[in-house]
Computed example of a mutant assay.
Amino acid sequence: MDILEIIKTRRNIKIFKLDPINPDKLHLWLEAAAMAPNHRMTEPWEVYIVGPETRAKLNHKTNFGDAPVVLAILSKHGATAIETEENALATACFVQNFNLAAWAEGVGTFWSSMGGNPKNREILGVPDGYDVIGVFGVGYPDETREPKQRTPIQNKLKQLL
């Protein structure tokens, strides 16, 4: 697949096959994710591989679609409010790189925002000074849904003179 096809076909996966993810592939996708743009090379992301005990405590309503891997992606706060915001944006780019690299090899993700909940932060052991950008199920899709209708991009374009 070329990059445009990868971007256009990637979906948030809700149900996964139980097939394991090759740890070397996971590492490769994380390395690709780390090529994300980040202001002043802060590299603010941290990746937690969530094991079965922690995953059970999180009590996600769908158990992350039975994904074989669950990751929590964190963003470190900066020295200023602006740097904290830049770090969160850079970490979102990290996530997108990861999602696209995995999708290129037939592996999908389920992005949940549940990590921002104070109880889940405690379960994950998130230290002060970090935001949880998301908790992700990662695996081979058992179901891929059709894309939802998007607003035509021409409706979002503004020309400044």
Rank of each mutant, 00 (worst) to 15 (best):
I73P: 04
K119D: 06
V95H: 03
N59H: 07
A104H: 05
T109G: 01
A79E: 10
K76G: 05
K119E: 11
N97Q: 07
S112A: 14
V70K: 13
M114T: 06
W103Q: 08
C93V: 11
G65E: 11
G125F: 06
C93N: 12
E122R: 10
A72G: 01
T84H: 01
N97L: 05
A92Y: 00
A104S: 11
A67P: 15
A56K: 11
H60Y: 02
G108K: 03
H77Y: 10
F110I: 07
P118R: 05
G106H: 11
A90D: 11
G106F: 03
G78D: 07
V69M: 07
K61G: 08
S75H: 01
F110E: 13
L124Y: 03
Q96I: 15
G116W: 02
F98D: 14
H77C: 12
C93W: 00
M114I: 09
W111F: 13
I82N: 05
V70I: 06
F64D: 09
K61C: 04
S112K: 09
H60I: 05
F98C: 12
F64E: 13
N99W: 08
A72V: 08
V107F: 12
A88V: 13
A104M: 08
K119L: 03
E83T: 10
L89I: 15
L58I: 14
E122L: 00
V107P: 09
S113L: 09
A104C: 06
F64K: 10
S113E: 04
K119Q: 10
E105F: 04
A67E: 14
N97H: 09
A102H: 06
R121S: 07
N87I: 10
G65S: 07
K76T: 11
D66H: 14
I123E: 09
F94Q: 08
H60M: 11
K57Y: 02
N117S: 15
H60E: 15
W111T: 15
A90I: 06
G65K: 01
L58P: 02
M114C: 04
I82A: 14
F94M: 01
E105W: 07
I82Q: 12
N63P: 11
A56V: 06
V95L: 15
T84N: 04
G65A: 08
K119S: 05
A101T: 12
G78E: 13
S113D: 04
K76C: 08
S112R: 12
G115W: 07
K61H: 10
N120K: 05
S113M: 15
N99G: 03
T91G: 10
L124C: 02
T109V: 12
H60A: 09
G125D: 12
A101C: 04
V70E: 12
S112E: 13
T80C: 12
F64R: 10
D66Q: 13
P68G: 10
A72N: 05
P118T: 13
T84F: 00
A101W: 00
E86A: 11
F110H: 15
L74Y: 02
N87V: 11
H77V: 05
A92L: 02
K61Y: 09
V69C: 02
